[in-house]
């Protein structure tokens, strides 16, 4: 027979009594109040429910009445094979595995699993949804963009040249080219096939270079990068909400930074994808892929030296990496 010292607590009351639990080998037990030596309860172990097992915390034994007994000894276990979780939680191999696997899984999740999943599911996003997204994004963007100052005939001639090149390259041409003005030379694509070109870009590129850039943007549309980004953002939000909702303060900032670095890596592969698409179609249109490289080099800041660590902070690969890749493809 075991004599276990502890405390007897009453259901829904703050009253507690110092008590001794007498446990027989057949599982029957009695709890006696230490101070006056009267019986508080008597039952069998089978009819009791034991509390959760946590490291360093005594395991409660709950009785039918709602009362319970807390032993003094935090290491006491009511049944021999109890506490699988507590075992995992205190076992060195598991802990070390977790310390390695947790960061590794997060890294894989945000750099591999989610992007791969996004790539796989992007074709499933209905075109109608993409069209709506494109239309409403354009509406929102137009609040911050200026109308183009290019002459009508110039816009028309760019579109005509583009249509000719696209047809020659065998591209299904349902792209809509829009002209806007902003502070920097740039162009971007929306998932509904709208490609927006800034006057500032038109002004610094030759006509053929501009076509090369349009092929690059068409690549984003054709490869459904917009849909990929949508899936990725939603999946990222779910994972973050489910797994990391409990984090707070600085940890959230650190992890958030890590996640956006992972997302930037994904964004860089999409840029490379679009470059490859442009090279392929430039060739098919009988144009030189070098046009894309020279367009990139015409953008301001091209004299800047390559800093490889900076690449991790960027949504676009380093220009040098990109031009080298394009030039090697054109040989």
């Amino acid at each position: 027979m075991q004599r276990i010292t502890g405390k007897y607590c009453m259901a829904g009351r703050s009253d507690t009594r110092p008590a001794i639990l007498l446990l027989r080998d057949d599982g029957s037990l009695r709890v006696l109040a230490t101070d006056f030596d009267y019986e508080l309860t008597s039952t069998t172990l089978k009819e009791c429910r034991q509390g959760d097992i946590l490291p360093g915390i005594p395991v409660e034994l709950h009785f039918d009445s709602g009362d319970y007994f807390i032993p003094e000894d935090p290491d006491l276990r009511w049944t021999p094979r109890s506490g699988f979780l507590a075992y995992l939680e205190s076992h060195m191999v598991m802990v070390l595995a977790a310390a390695l696997l947790v960061p590794l899984s997060f890294w894989l999740m945000f750099t591999q699993v989610i992007p791969a999943g996004a790539k796989a599911t992007a074709p499933l996003v209905p075109q109608e949804v993409l069209n709506r997204v494109g239309r409403s994004s354009m509406k929102t963007l137009d609040y911050s963009l200026e109308p183009s100052t290019l002459a009508q005939y110039e816009q028309a001639s760019i579109i005509k040249d583009w249509n000719k090149a696209a047809e020659k390259a065998g591209l299904d041409n349902d792209y809509r080219i829009l002209f806007r003005s902003a502070i920097a030379p740039n162009a971007f694509a929306l998932p509904d096939g709208t490609i927006v070109v800034f006057d500032e870009l038109v002004n610094i590129l030759s006509r053929d270079e501009l076509i090369a850039v349009l092929f690059h943007e068409a690549g984003h549309v054709d490869r459904r990068h917009g849909a990929q980004m949508m899936v990725q953002a939603s999946a990222g939000a779910i994972v973050y909400g489910l797994l990391l909702g409990d984090l707070e303060g600085l940890s959230e900032v650190v992890l958030g930074t890590g996640i956006s670095l992972g997302e930037n890596a994904f964004s860089r592969t999409m840029e490379t994808d679009a470059d490859d698409f442009a090279v392929e179609h430039l060739k098919a249109a009988g144009m030189s892929p070098d046009l894309l490289a020279s367009a990139l080099n015409s953008l301001p800041g091209s004299e800047r030296e390559t800093n490889s660590w900076r690449e991790y902070l960027s949504t676009h690969p380093e220009r040098k990496t990109r031009t080298e890749r394009i030039e090697s493809a054109s040989d």
Partner: peptide, 26 residues
């Protein structure tokens, strides 16, 4: 740290479902 790490691993392994148990145990 031990408790938290193992719970996080189990949460990852169950695609987030175990997160509710992890929160309670933590």
């Amino acid at each position: 740290t031990k408790l938290w790490l193992v719970n996080m691993l189990l949460t990852l392994a169950t695609l987030g479902i175990y997160g509710a148990w992890a929160k309670v145990r933590n």
